[in-house]
């Protein structure tokens, strides 16, 4: 009797303890945490503003920055300044690097453009996001044009890749194929983008895309013309007609706000918000986007000649 009672007691204890152990861990949801301060892909892409922010990315990143587009010392190649060290390119000692930021950056921006196009094509927001989808196409074309100018034919990536996708290891496409792709994107962009007067101030519009397409066609048309390749004439004709479209649109005019001084103030007018002469520009504004390296004059790197436009310069201090 005593024995069985004991047995029951053990069982009771055992059951209770087992319950205690199990109670803390039964739910797997404990590990399903949600980011509380970060935005995730599945929750994004719900409003037109989401697409607008995604399109904004390209303005800050892909548009050429006049300072970074060359070297800090590119004035040394002119007669207003000189360097104290031999230029590796002119000395013939320049070795092509294994990696290049232009290549890496372009594909990183293309990845974002692909994402915008992919999400925009699937979204049900319709008209509301059409301009941003157009900007996605435009900037994808813009980046491929940057690549093709420097490298010729490059791999064409038209979706958001994962490391496991075989496309990561795509071969370089034929130069002509890259241009076909650029022009196709630009045509989509021209179709999607609003005309300048309907577009938000400063954003890429239909006329800007047309002007860019004219430049692309002129570049490649000329390239082919002088190499006797096919398609040259057709490209040059497109350049001509797109340029005419821009002229006919009357969307742009010369900047004349400062009268005779207008040329001097073309890029430095602090009061001008949207210059009528500018089609696609990188913008600077105090406290928002500033270029701190306008004149990187320093001992040994950039030495002005008498032709230097500024009368004086300050030597940067040693620290």
């Amino acid at each position: 009797m005593l024995f069985t009672k004991n047995k029951f007691k053990y069982f009771k204890y055992g059951a209770f303890l087992a319950l205690l152990v199990v109670s803390i861990s039964s739910c797997n949801k404990f590990l399903d945490l949600k980011p509380a301060s970060e935005i995730t892909d599945p929750t994004y892409w719900k409003t037109a503003n989401d697409f607008k922010l995604a399109a904004n990315f390209f303005y800050q990143n892909t548009l050429d920055d006049p300072h970074y587009s060359g070297t800090n010392n590119s004035d040394n190649m002119s007669d207003i300044a000189f360097g104290t060290q031999t230029d590796a390119v002119s000395a013939g000692t320049y070795v092509a690097p294994e990696t290049d930021a232009v290549w890496d950056n372009a594909y990183s921006w293309i990845r974002n453009a692909n994402k915008l196009i992919q999400e925009g094509s699937n979204a049900e927001l319709g008209q509301d996001i059409q301009p941003y989808l157009g900007e996605g196409y435009f900037f994808r074309a813009y980046n491929y044009f940057t690549l093709v100018k420097l490298y010729g034919g490059v791999p064409i990536i038209s979706k958001v890749l994962l490391p496991s996708d075989p496309e990561v290891f795509s071969k370089r496409a034929d130069r002509a194929v890259v241009f076909d792709s650029i022009l196709r994107d630009l045509n989509f962009a021209i179709a999607d983008l609003p005309v300048k007067k309907d577009a938000e101030t400063g954003r890429i519009c239909k006329e800007a895309a047309q002007a860019f397409k004219a430049r692309v066609c002129l570049f490649e048309g000329t390239w082919r013309k002088f190499r006797g390749l096919t398609g040259a004439d057709s490209l040059l004709e497109q350049a001509y007609s797109e340029a005419n479209n821009v002229i006919a649109s009357n969307a742009y005019s010369l900047y004349e706000a400062k009268g005779a001084e207008s040329y001097r103030y073309l890029f430095i007018d602090a009061t001008s918000i949207d210059n009528p002469e500018s089609i696609i520009v990188k913008k600077y504004r105090t406290n928002i986007n500033v270029n701190g390296w306008a004149y990187g004059v320093s001992w040994g790197n950039l030495n002005p000649t008498k032709k230097w436009p500024m009368p004086t310069f300050a030597r940067t201090a040693c620290r």
Partner: peptide, 25 residues
Amino acid sequence: YIQLISIGGKYPIDGSTVSKMAYLN
């Protein structure tokens, strides 16, 4: 393990006000 979207940066698209941007993180 989740694709994150970053929002940041500042650039004067319209020439005067700050625009933020979104990009894949």
